[in-house]
Design a protein around this nucleic acid. Structure first.
Lengths: 181, 181
DNA sequence: CCTATAAACTAATATCGTTAGTTTTATATT
DNA sequence: AATATAAAACTAACGATATTAGTTTATAGG
């Protein structure tokens, strides 16, 4: 990871993605803002680089979590990795979310890779084809929804969030078995 | 709804929340930007007003969808209303998401109202107390996750999204019955 | 040592949010 | 109706931002 991306990630995770500006980034690097144009194509270009880096990290975490596991074991492990990633890198995760106009091929590929991890695990349940796609969408919705609501402080009530994750995954996994046949 | 908020909602839904600036809003209203300060407290104030208006609308839709329904019927109806709202008002929905620093009392109350709609419906399953809170978090995660991924174009594969909603809700509702006892 | 490439710089411009102070418009009170 | 008050518009100006253009410095490779 380049020094510049690392600095941008630090700002994003500490202060939020919107705090990553050419001004703040340049200040952190002891550089003048225009110098950054030698490394990426302006603020939109930086956002794309951040998204790519974030998706690569996320993909790595999820793949690692899925190795040697199947069915519920794999799902719990992947879910853990997903939520841990967002907790550790809230700003970087924000950068990975599809933004209008981001049609970079590398982003498409990374997104597809991540979806593939889910569908592979669902195969271990015997879920394939369209059902696997629908179920993957459900799982991604659940994980992204929880992680992003948590990151924004959307769960006001002071009740253990890890228990909520466990319970909602349990619900989903019980339900998933009704899709198999 | 005031003329100003309506104009801001139009911009947000058409071009995204980040396109709602004092400059674009003033232009749409044939006004100079400083005049807007007579109506709200700068851009942060406008954001809060948008969030309040959006949450009021969302709460109304969800309440209306839940009237006279119970169990799965109520959940499907609420989910429909939730996703329909985000599809109709993607920018306004974005404005409703908790933002750092937004500790306005009205926002807290509206958020609490919306959570209450879910927990009331879960009562019709016999789910109460902490279980109701955990399950509500799961449902909100599922709906918010799906709606926001859909809004951002996060589902690349061209496979019917409404079927995905039905299937993931079915999965969750089958699983929910394992929480009851 | 010279040259070519990368990466920094300064200077300048347009846009945005914001503040201050002023003027116009609308409302309400006598 | 005339006037006082409040609401809402305006102009002018400032600081911060992204961006472009043109220039200078550093760094490698031959």
């Amino acid at each position: 990871m380049t020094t510049i991306i690392k600095a941008a990630v630090d700002i994003a995770d500490a202060l939020g993605l919107e705090a990553v500006t050419l001004a703040t980034l340049a200040k952190k690097l002891n550089i003048r803002p225009p110098s950054l144009y030698n490394h990426f194509d302006g603020l939109p270009g930086l956002r794309i680089e951040l998204a790519i880096h974030g998706l690569e990290e996320l993909r790595g975490s999820l793949m690692n979590a899925a190795i040697g596991r199947s069915e519920d074991d794999a799902i719990y492990s992947i879910a853990d990795a997903y939520i841990a990633f967002v907790r550790k890198h809230p700003g970087l995760y924000e950068a990975t979310l599809p933004a209008p106009g981001n049609e970079d091929d590398r982003l498409q590929q990374l997104g597809s890779d991540i979806v593939h991890i889910f569908t592979r695990v669902l195969q271990s349940y015997g879920i394939e084809g369209d059902a696997a796609i629908h179920t993957t969408r459900g799982l991604r919705s659940l994980l992204h929804g929880f992680a992003s609501l948590e990151a924004k402080g959307g769960f006001g009530i002071p009740l253990d969030l890890d228990v909520s994750i466990k319970q909602m995954l349990h619900i989903f996994l019980v339900g998933i078995r009704s899709v198999k046949e």
